[in-house]
Amino acid sequence: MKKVIVLILLAVVAYYLVDVFSQIKFGENRFQGENVRDFYLDKSKNDLHVSNSVTSIVVNFRGFDTLGEVTVLFLAATALGSVLYRRKAHGEAVLFNASTIVRSGAHLLFAPILLLGAYVFIHGHLSPGGGFQGGTIIATGFLLMLLAYHDYKVSHGVLTWVESLAGLTFASLGLTGLILGKTFLENFLPIGTINDLFSGGIIPIIYIAVGFKVGAELTGVLYTMLNEKEYKKS
């Protein structure tokens, strides 16, 4: 009975979605006159000198969203810790070491993965990627180590420091703009020439801070969840 109701509901939803989206032309230029897309593309190239306009939107035009997004991740990590919190000592992340081969491979790949993450967030304004992606890659690197070694520990203290300092950097960069008489999150550094590494003013700096923050947060989340064990192997 419930299935039937749900299916009818879904059919209605499907009808309307298809109806609406069949009228939105795929792959056509819908906007005439001045519009957000052309404005962003133009300003990103000419005013901000940021090569990747997605980055300039994420960090500058809509930087406030990104601040919120970072906060969402931060609060998710906090809420997750609060939900899973136990006073007892935690179990171990993995029960036994992986085989020698996986361990050596993890060893060898760990540094390049970290470097890849760093590369992605340092070049966030030049190539695809940025703080979130880079942070995720770094967290994945730590995940690799956690999977390979049963005694690999991540220090919560260090994570807290990195996380907080990176967040503070982001917020203070925003507030600095305000203090300097501009608006919140407005660029106050020289913008350089497009496609140089040192270009885009505060945008790369913010993205680097985001990268550190996301990396630390996701590592913390993974560590908390991995250590959450119901049973212990005898």
């Binding site: 970290l114 590369y119 340092i122 590494l197």
Partner: peptide, 19 residues
């Protein structure tokens, strides 16, 4: 490019120290 190389040197040094 000189900027890339400099930043690269710094980054790789940090990663190398860390690992």
């Amino acid at each position: 490019e000189i900027q890339e190389v400099l930043v690269g040197a710094a980054t790789t040094m940090l990663v190398a120290l860390f690992t």
